Simulated scan of single mutants.
Amino acid sequence: MSGTAAGERLARAALSRLTEPGDERVGRWLRTMEPAELVRGLTGTGPPPPGAGAERLAGCRARARTLDPEGDLRAVARLGGRYVCPGDTEWPAQLDDLGDARPLGLWVRGSPDLRLWALRSVALVGARACTGYGSHVAALLGGGLAERGWVVVSGAAYGIDGAAHRGALAAGGATVAVLASGLDVAYPRGHAELLGRIGEQGIVLTELPPGGHPTRHRFVLRNRVIAALTRGTVVVEAEYRSGSLVTARHARRLGRHTMGVPGPVTSGLSAGVHELLREGACLVTDADDVVELVGGIGELGPERRGPVVPRDLLPPTAARVLEALPGRGGAPVARVAHDAGTSEERALASLYELRALGFVERQGDLWQLADGSSTSVEAKPPDGTPVCGEAVLDLG
């Protein structure tokens, strides 16, 4: 690690314990003050920063009683981690888009280079109490993106987050967990093993120093880091009041791609995603859709179309002649030619071609559809009463 002086790193580590993540007032102070100067001002060993209220200063001085940034750095080093600061070569520059809410630094565990991984990353987030459908889709997306060389970023929570991480790990791919607690605090506890695997195979990071415990407020602020770090955010299942929607809306404000996976309209867990789609997020259904949006020029998903059936391969005239035959009974060549908009000679040639292919058969002077090749059926209720004048439903 290089780029940040040891004294500034130490001061930023101290500020991460004195202040809360995403505090824009702290960001404004750092525009005109050095980190060490701000630490002295907040702890009472120097002039207080401009506009600092008595309550804030009292809170910082209470925290300062146990302040030990050198000990925090050593504790994280024992975990195999490090403290990455703005100015380091490993610092992801896209986090600067957060302005005054930019992290003071990131406590990071995992050997890969965070900046390089973040350049090609996608956030997958969603409901904690997800359905089996949501968990399945998140795992498929995580695995699919990992197989295509993308880093999957999420919050390591139960539900969609955990499924996305596991999908990426199962594919032997890269994944990053962004925590709302210290690196040494496994939260949720049930994901301790998962977080261990991510730390070995990927990256775990947080704004909070060792021992930092999660709170509702910190989860909300954590979401802005997920949004800023990645090229786009995909939401898989979310209710109207969901932290996942906060992440997606942060991403949209930052100019990142926002995406949603649709679900059943009868499920409350689909409501938030569908509202996001109504607001202009892109609908995605698999990793190819996601990569087409967030990837570079030429990273296009496959063409979406139904299966090719034999009649799709017919020449245009033969296809019109086939469609001109009645659904029941037969018709003479003259009528078929009229309905197909072609000459009798062309119609007859096409009919013989269609007979060779098994689509039609001849009965005397009449031509009719062969058994099993009917292209339409009359829509009638069970009692056989015609509907809308014998309405025809195309089954081709």
Rank of each mutant, 00 (worst) to 15 (best):
A5Y: 08
S16W: 01
G22L: 11
G22H: 04
E24M: 07
R28W: 02
V39R: 09
T45Y: 09
C60Q: 13
R61G: 07
R63T: 11
A64W: 00
A64V: 14
L67C: 11
G71T: 14
L73P: 07
V76S: 07
A77K: 00
G80Q: 03
R82Y: 02
Y83S: 04
Y83E: 04
G87T: 00
D100M: 12
P112W: 00
D113M: 06
W117I: 02
R120S: 00
S121A: 14
A123T: 06
V125C: 14
H136D: 12
H136P: 03
G142C: 02
L145D: 03
E147A: 11
G159S: 02
A163S: 15
A164F: 07
H165A: 14
R166H: 05
G167R: 11
A171Q: 01
G172P: 08
A177D: 06
A177F: 12
V178K: 00
V178Q: 02
L179K: 10
A186S: 12
A186G: 15
Y187N: 04
A192T: 13
G196P: 05
E200Q: 06
Q201R: 13
I203S: 00
E207F: 12
P209I: 06
G211D: 11
G211R: 09
H217C: 06
F219R: 11
I226C: 13
T233Q: 11
V235Y: 02
L245V: 13
T247F: 14
A251H: 01
R253C: 11
R256H: 08
H257Y: 12
G260F: 00
V261P: 02
V265F: 10
T266M: 10
G268Y: 07
H274W: 03
L277V: 10
G280E: 02
C282G: 12
V284M: 00
T285L: 10
D288A: 13
G295M: 04
G295I: 01
E299V: 10
L300E: 14
G301H: 03
E303C: 08
D312I: 15
T317L: 09
L322G: 10
L325R: 07
G329I: 06
G330K: 10
A340P: 13
G341S: 10
A347D: 02
L348D: 13
A349I: 07
S350G: 04
L354P: 12
R355M: 10
L366W: 04
D371M: 15
G372I: 14
S373I: 02
S373F: 14
T375G: 14
S376E: 05
A391F: 04
L393M: 10
L393E: 09
